[in-house]
């Protein structure tokens, strides 16, 4: 079967604005979009740029907008799209470097800002752990699904909130914050609290839940954000209550 790939191309050195270029590719039942792109680059146009690495939905490099939906090119079967013309564009919400390659520095910076690693209150223990941290199966289940995130950026590129706020941390960073907070080995909630409760944090989400719909690994970022909200509300309430009781205590002593 022949399929036309309609690819949005942009070379900042040559083009003033993005343009579509079409390539006709012979595809089979199990041909994936990534394989078709590799074939185009090897046989028709070596100047076509796109990112990929593992080819098995593990590295998260080949995210792109396929038929207007953010998907991993290595995981998308062309026959599943059910069309003989497939439109491929770079992921939206990111700056295009060339063709289908986008700049993800800001995305990774946001990921880093929520401290996506285990934090212990005891710094010495953090640097030089002396024992294993035993974890029970039910404790693992609390975060396992969120641990499947491959940092591909599809969730953030599909989130409509980025259309009105670039500062928003986004579903990926927030779901990873949740993944570590609910980990029984982690004690870093208070360290992450400021950034999560900031203007760019969990309160920016308006629950379109497009992130969960488009996640190629079945992570549920939308759910993680709502659970984080609950935790933050509960923590803030307890904090305010303790401040209030301290104040009352002080006043009663005077």
């Amino acid at each position: 079967m022949e399929v036309t790939l309609k690819i949005l191309r942009f070379d900042p050195l040559k083009d003033k604005k993005p343009r579509f270029q079409e390539y006709v590719v012979e595809v089979y039942e199990y041909t994936r979009v990534l394989e078709a792109l590799i074939w185009v680059r090897e046989n028709l146009d070596p100047s076509l740029s796109f990112r990929y690495s593992c080819r098995m939905a593990q590295c998260g490099s080949c995210g792109m907008l396929i038929d207007e939906v953010p998907r991993l090119a290595c995981k998308t079967l062309i026959k599943d799209l059910g069309r003989d013309e497939v439109t491929i564009k770079p992921l939206p919400k990111y700056r295009v470097i060339k063709d289908l390659v986008v700049e993800m520095d800001d995305f990774f910076e946001k990921h880093r800002s929520v401290k996506p690693y285990l934090i212990r209150k005891n710094r010495e223990e953090q640097e030089k752990p002396k024992k294993f941290y035993v974890q029970l199966p039910h404790e693992l289940q609390r975060y396992l699904n969120y641990g499947y995130c491959i940092v591909c950026g599809l969730c953030s590129s599909s989130c409509p909130n980025f259309d009105s706020s670039w500062e928003y941390l986004g579903p990926q960073a927030l779901s990873q914050a949740y993944r570590y907070i609910v980990d029984s080995r982690d004690e870093g909630f208070e360290e992450r609290y400021e950034v999560l409760n900031s203007n760019s944090g969990v309160w920016r989400c308006h629950f379109a839940s497009e992130c969960s719909e488009n996640c190629p690994k079945g992570v549920e970022p939308a759910q993680a954000i709502q659970m984080l909200r609950r935790m933050i509300l509960s923590f803030s309430f307890k904090k305010k209550l303790s401040l209030f009781s301290e104040k009352i205590h002080r006043l009663s002593k005077q």
């Binding site: 907008l65 038929d67 207007e68 939906v69 409509p160 259309d163 009105s164 308006h206 629950f207 379109a208 839940s209 497009e210 719909e213 488009n214």
Partner: peptide, 21 residues
Amino acid sequence: ERVWKWFAIRGRSVNSIAYSF
């Protein structure tokens, strides 16, 4: 252009359409 994206339907799930409405 961002406001027009609220009306985009293609490629959106029913959740996003509910959000736009």
